[in-house]
């Protein structure tokens, strides 16, 4: 992690915590609540959480397996598609709520996807001496994600309670696969002849590593019946690289493909269904 990232992370965390404290302080000035609200002031919630996510691979440092002799080294640079492929996540939501604040641990199995493309052109002295090849790579990361979020309620009364959240996460790589779609266009016959060289699927876990980062977002708690439904939108920003720079994998390198130092950014939409723990202890009576 660079100093810049560290400072950025700290700034975001402090700003978020300040906002959440401000919400909490303003909440303390309110009059006493009825017994049900007092009961809800401290509560454990446990349930299922699921959703979809869209990833952006941000290349901190670019690496290339192709080193050009007679053209610029910048030419074969990969082009990333941002937030274009959907992933999914499913896991637990463990939430400890106290007077407007929640500490939420959200371990989940997550699939994150991103793609990039690169292309090369060869030309000769003859008019029709031209050949193009294009690589389209889709990267699929299977992760165990361990986010710890602090949530602050914006409205602490009623059955609809919007909140803001901020926190950090740690992602454990469990599996990574890459699909490389190779296509080419041959102009030698005078008519562009486009063909596919097929798709190569490669396991590339060894070229990836666990990573961590910060997250923030907003959501709403919906308290109907005896469960709480949580809808939230979050943005994650990794502060460490998901790829291992310098790790070469034969199948990748042979195609001239070397992973950049990539930090993942992620937008996710999640829905959780959580149950109160104290209800189980029969200290809470159903409405």
């Amino acid at each position: 992690m660079t100093r810049k990232d560290f400072l950025l992370g700290n700034k975001i965390l402090f700003a978020g915590i300040f906002c959440l404290i401000s919400i909490g302080v303003s909440g303390q000035k309110k009059p006493p609540k009825n017994p049900l609200e007092s009961f809800l002031d401290t509560q454990f919630w446990l349930g299922l959480r699921m959703g979809v996510n869209y990833a952006q691979a941000f290349p901190e440092t670019s690496f290339e397996g192709i080193s050009p002799i007679n053209y610029s080294a910048d030419d074969p640079t990969k082009s990333y598609d941002d937030f274009s492929l959907s992933g999914a996540h499913m896991g637990l939501e463990m939430n400890f709520y106290h007077q407007g604040f929640s500490a939420s641990f959200q371990p989940a199995f997550k699939r994150s996807r991103y793609s990039y493309s690169s292309g090369f052109v060869w030309e000769g002295a003859q008019v029709n001496s031209r050949f193009e090849t294009n690589y389209k790579a889709e990267q699929r990361l299977d992760l165990i994600e361990l986010p710890l979020m602090i949530k602050g309620d914006i409205i602490r009364k009623g059955k609809i309670r919007p909140f803001l959240m901020i926190g950090a996460f740690y992602s454990l790589i469990t599996s990574v696969q890459k699909d490389v779609d190779v296509s080419q266009i041959d102009y030698s016959s005078g008519t562009p002849l486009e063909s596919s060289n097929g798709t190569v699927t490669i396991g590339v876990k060894d070229a990836f590593q666990n990573f961590y980062g910060i997250a923030g977002g907003a959501g709403v708690n919906l308290d109907y019946w005896n469960i709480r439904t949580v809808f939230e939108v979050a943005y994650q920003r990794a502060l460490s690289s998901a790829t291992k720079p310098g790790v070469l994998q034969n199948e990748l390198a042979s195609l001239g493909d070397v992973n950049d130092e990539v930090r993942l950014r992620d937008i996710s939409v999640s829905l959780s269904f959580v149950f109160p723990f104290r209800f189980i202890d029969q200290q809470f009576k159903a409405l």
Partner: peptide, 28 residues
């Protein structure tokens, strides 16, 4: 366990390990 698993080894440096294809755009 999470902390232990999270401690990953660094890969070799770029000068210790590389794989380079030296391309020339001349088809001939």
């Amino acid at each position: 366990i999470v902390l232990l698993v999270g401690c990953s080894e660094d890969g070799p440096t770029l000068s210790e390990s590389f794989f380079k294809i030296y391309d020339d755009s001349n088809i001939d």
